[in-house]
């Protein structure tokens, strides 16, 4: 730190001395930008135990606990309960899993990552769109694990193979829709711990204030009314109906409307808030 070091500019060993210059390539295209963020989402799956835990371990534990510990009391036998509960546990795992990317975005905003990305010439919405694209694979994994376990334990979907596939496709749509809810809070709340707190609390309310664990008809009238307002309820009903092949047209419409409502209500404000971060 003495003045002599100013003169002796090229010191013998400094890190970075041997970095040759590299011309900047042309600005990346929209697709490449999206794939970059999808890639980031997927490699994190491998490293972050949270992600893997939510995708694999959590649904397994839930299925076992609810089916064997409580299932007999709720539905007479664990086997009966499993027929009701398994489609719900897939919804539950997916909703829990859908928070992850929002929390990553929230951390990016809190650190310098957001600024660095914004100062590059990439197509900016790739941050949201690409990340959600990468999530599709994660969601597929999240839904297949409890399904396989359920089949092993005696879950017998009356809707057959086609019904199950349709239900899984519907769930991709629903999870994409509900992830906008988390994205909204991720962009709204600047502090990562506060954002995680709100998102976790909301998730808890959405999951337990639904018909995932027990049919809403068994609840007091006021609670049944509240539960019927919850989009998770409609997603669970639609999933169940598709898997068991007894979905009514009205329930399917409600299930699709729940997705549309989540996107309409949360995607636009999220995009606006995200852009406003610039002003």
């Amino acid at each position: 730190m003495t003045s002599s070091s100013t003169q002796a500019r090229p010191a013998a060993e400094f890190p970075g001395r041997s970095v040759p210059s590299l011309q900047r390539p042309p600005a990346p295209g929209v697709l490449f930008a999206c794939r970059t963020f999808a890639w980031r989402t997927l490699i994190k799956l491998k490293y972050v135990q949270d992600h893997l835990g939510t995708a694999v371990v959590f649904p397994v534990i839930l299925t076992l606990v609810f089916t064997y510990l409580l299932g007999g009391a709720i539905a007479g036998t664990p086997g009966n309960y499993l027929q009701f509960f398994l489609p719900g546990v897939i919804v539950l795992s997916l909703v829990a899993s859908s928070m992850m990317s929002a929390l990553t975005l929230n951390r990016d905003i809190a650190t310098g990552m957001f600024d660095r990305v914004r100062s590059t010439p990439i197509w900016q919405p790739a941050v949201l769109v690409g990340t959600m694209g990468g999530d599709v694979l994660r969601y597929a994994l999240t839904s297949v694990v409890p399904l396989a376990l359920g089949l092993l334990l005696g879950f017998r979907p009356d809707g057959g193979f086609a019904g199950v596939v349709l239900a899984l496709l519907y769930l991709q749509l629903f999870t994409f829709s509900v992830s906008w809810l988390w994205m909204f809070f991720a962009v709204l709340i600047p502090q990562p711990t506060a954002a995680a707190g709100v998102v976790n609390l909301l998730q808890f309310i959405l999951l337990f204030g639904s018909n995932i664990l027990a049919p809403s008809q068994t609840m007091p009238g006021w609670l049944e009314a509240v539960v019927k307002l919850n989009p998770v309820t409609h997603a669970a009903t639609t999933t169940r109906g598709l898997m068991h092949g007894d979905l009514s047209g009205g329930d399917l419409t409600a299930g699709l409307l729940a997705c549309a409502a989540l996107i309409v209500v949360f995607a636009t404000p999220t995009a606006l808030l995200y852009n406003r971060k610039q002003r």
């Binding site: 980031r40 994190k44 972050v48 951390r107 650190t111 310098g112 600024d115 660095r116």
Partner: peptide
């Protein structure tokens, strides 16, 4: 290169 580091610590 901002004041807070632009790194993803989970990578």
């Amino acid at each position: 290169t901002g004041q807070t580091m632009a790194l993803d610590e989970d990578m």
